[in-house]
Design a protein around this nucleic acid. Structure first.
Length: 566
RNA sequence: GCCCUCGUAGCUCAGUGGAUUAGAGCACUUGUCUUCGGAACAAGGUGUCGUAGGUUCGAAUCCUAUCGAGGGUACCA
């Protein structure tokens, strides 16, 4: 492909002058499958692009390029459709590539290496569950996406710090503790339990009750607001005396312990938790320092007026004098930078806060533009369940993350497989919009599913592990690739490019689509080409090995492990 | 009201300037198999790309309008 590009540029320069190149790069794409004799491996639309500029018929231009190209290279060229140039690479090209992929691990990695984030320090923040609230399916989703994105950055040379932000103080905590302390039975159970999951469930229930009380009763609302202030003080000054403090720290500790157990289970490792209480102060500092130039007092609160920037106004310090989430996000941004001196900060959250985040970042941009420039906010949608009503943790109709894992695990009778199935079914969608999670579909063993991909990799492993039939000597004739062989080789060889694009776009779904197509091509190859015991055993084993390496690597980047058996 | 995102096959989704026939998976029907693991492969067909205009050699893709869904819009995040 690089060769094609090089030769094309050369021809363009010679035939049409140096200036025609200015207008963008030469684009080379993989064309759709066309019927007919000619197998097109690559194509370019350059002739059409030039036609306007040169005021010549695109097919005519393509014809000129084709003739010159044939003089310079062994690659076959054809003009098609309105003026596309199709290229067909000789078999030797693929054979050599497969050789490179299958020789040894080091050569394989060399061939697929990426450098998008070479020597870059990247902080990736995601998952962000709140202590004292439920850890639901949405957290599972964002954890899976964030981990896959982190792995892509890592593979392309970045030093990644996975961090997690959560509200250990704030109104939601007050709501939870209010309800918990009102309910004697829950409180007893809470105090008597050691298991993190049990405590987490008690807290999740209390949050629902507390929220209801906050919305339904003015009296409760007043008490919760008061409680909120007390909790701030307890958290900030680390006060240990009194029942409230005791309950608070016990709940907080159990929440974080529960998170740790959960991440361990799904194979995601966070380097650091940033509890809100630990970044609030830094945020307050910045906000106060830049009031009134950036932030202004209004109705007893401190706000940032986003209207001048086409955004909306948000409150940073409420009239109780407490920092809101906005200020904590400001503090978090500065704290992350202090801690890691990052080149890029990626923040992954739900898309419901996209406008909110714009306001926060716009305010910071007024006094720390560099920090904002290095920050990238990636948003995803919600996880919908077929036929279910919309989830809201404050209403209590959520689906817990652990329950999702458990039910899939029950169906597949294996945790590793279950995680592979769940992760793949999340990652195959483009990140951004809402997604639908259908348990039946994710555990399905065929179609575009995790198990289908895993199966193809396991199958390849089995072929590789089988006994070599040494009685079959390698055929002496040159190896003319069959259609099935060419197709699977072509796919295998594409891997590096796809991985690069997925990384640049932070789009794991591109990798998923590719791996699915790859698995399909491999299955077809498997059906039509006997490996063990065939005359081409030696060569075909190389294809199998190259495939297996790519599949295992690709799934690895997605955070999915290939088992030995399934 | 204003701002943002999204409308593609019965369902779930890719495709976001290029290929005469807009692609996958699911579901449905029928084949292949004494297999290197059938958890497989092959064949079968559906679309006013929400609607209407516009730009372009060329539009699902860009622009405008419009309809519909979701989110945000001062002390939740």
């Amino acid at each position: 492909m690089d060769t094609i590009e090089k030769i094309l540029k050369e021809i363009l320069r010679e035939e049409f002058g140096a200036d025609v190149l200015e207008e963008g790069e030469v684009e080379i794409s993989v064309p759709p499958e066309l019927s007919g004799e000619f197998r097109a491996d690559y194509a370019t639309n350059i002739a059409m692009k030039l036609s306007k500029k040169l005021k010549r018929n695109p097919r005519e231009i393509a014809e000129v390029i084709r003739e010159k190209f044939l003089e310079k290279s062994k690659i076959k060229v054809e003009v098609a459709g309105p003026g596309f140039l199709n290229f067909m690479l000789p078999d030797e090209y693929f054979i050599k590539k497969i050789e490179d992929f299958s020789r040894n691990e080091a050569d394989f990695l060399e061939n697929i290496s990426q450098d998008e984030y070479k020597d870059k320090v990247v902080v990736v923040e995601f998952s962000d569950p709140n202590p004292f609230k439920v850890l639901h399916i949405g957290h599972l989703y964002t954890s899976v996406i964030g981990d896959a994105m982190s792995r892509m950055v890592e593979f392309s040379g970045g030093k990644v710090h996975r961090v997690n932000f959560g509200g250990d103080v704030g109104l939601h905590v007050a709501k939870t503790l209010y309800a918990l302390m009102k309910n004697k039975d829950s409180l007893e159970e809470f105090k008597g339990s050691e298991e993190a999951e049990v405590i987490a469930n008690i807290l999740a229930r209390a949050y629902v009750e507390g929220t209801r009380a906050y919305e339904e009763s003015e009296e409760a609302k007043g008490e919760i607001v008061k409680l909120n202030k007390q909790i701030y003080e307890i958290a900030e000054k680390k006060i240990r005396e009194g029942e409230l403090a005791e309950v608070y720290f016990r709940g907080r500790e159990a929440s974080y312990r529960y998170f740790d157990e959960f991440y361990e289970k799904i194979g995601v490792k966070f380097e650091k938790y940033y509890p809100e209480s630990e970044v609030a102060e830094r945020g307050v500092e910045e906000v106060e320092k830049h009031t009134p130039e950036v932030y202004q007092e209004s109705e007893g609160a401190i706000v940032f007026k986003g209207e001048e920037f086409g955004l909306h106004t948000r409150v940073f310090m409420n009239k109780e004098g407490l920092p809101t989430y906005e200020t904590k996000d400001v503090g978090l941004l500065f704290t992350k930078n202090d801690d890691f001196k990052f080149d890029e900060s990626v923040v992954i959250t739900g898309n419901d806060i996209v406008e909110y985040m714009k306001v926060v970042l716009k305010s910071v941009e007024q006094y720390a533009p560099e920090l904002v420039r290095k920050t990238k906010h990636i948003t995803h949608g919600m996880v919908k369940l077929p036929g279910a009503v919309k989830m809201a943790s404050r209403k209590g109709n959520f689906v817990k993350a652990v329950d999702v894992i458990r039910s899939v695990e029950e169906r597949l009778e294996d945790l590793g497989l279950a995680l592979g199935a769940i992760k793949y079914s999340f990652l195959k969608y483009r990140v951004g919009g809402d997604i639908e999670f259908d348990i039946d579909e994710s555990v399905s063993l065929n179609g575009n599913s995790g198990p289908y991909l895993l199966y193809s990799a396991v199958r390849a492993k089995k072929i590789l592990a089988a006994e070599t039939d040494s009685s079959k000597a390698q055929s002496a004739e040159p190896w003319a690739l069959s259609m099935a062989e060419v197709k699977v080789c072509k796919k295998i060889v594409e891997y590096g490019e796809v991985l690069g694009e997925a990384t640049r776009e932070m789009a794991p779904h591109l990798l998923c689509s590719y791996l699915f197509e790859l698995a399909k091509e491999f299955s077809r190859f498997y059906e039509s080409c006997q490996v063990r015991g065939s005359e081409r055993e030696k060569e075909r084993l190389k294809i199998v090995l190259a495939f297996q390496r790519v599949m295992e690597h690709g799934l690895g980047v997605l955070g999915i492990n290939v088992p030995e058996e399934m």
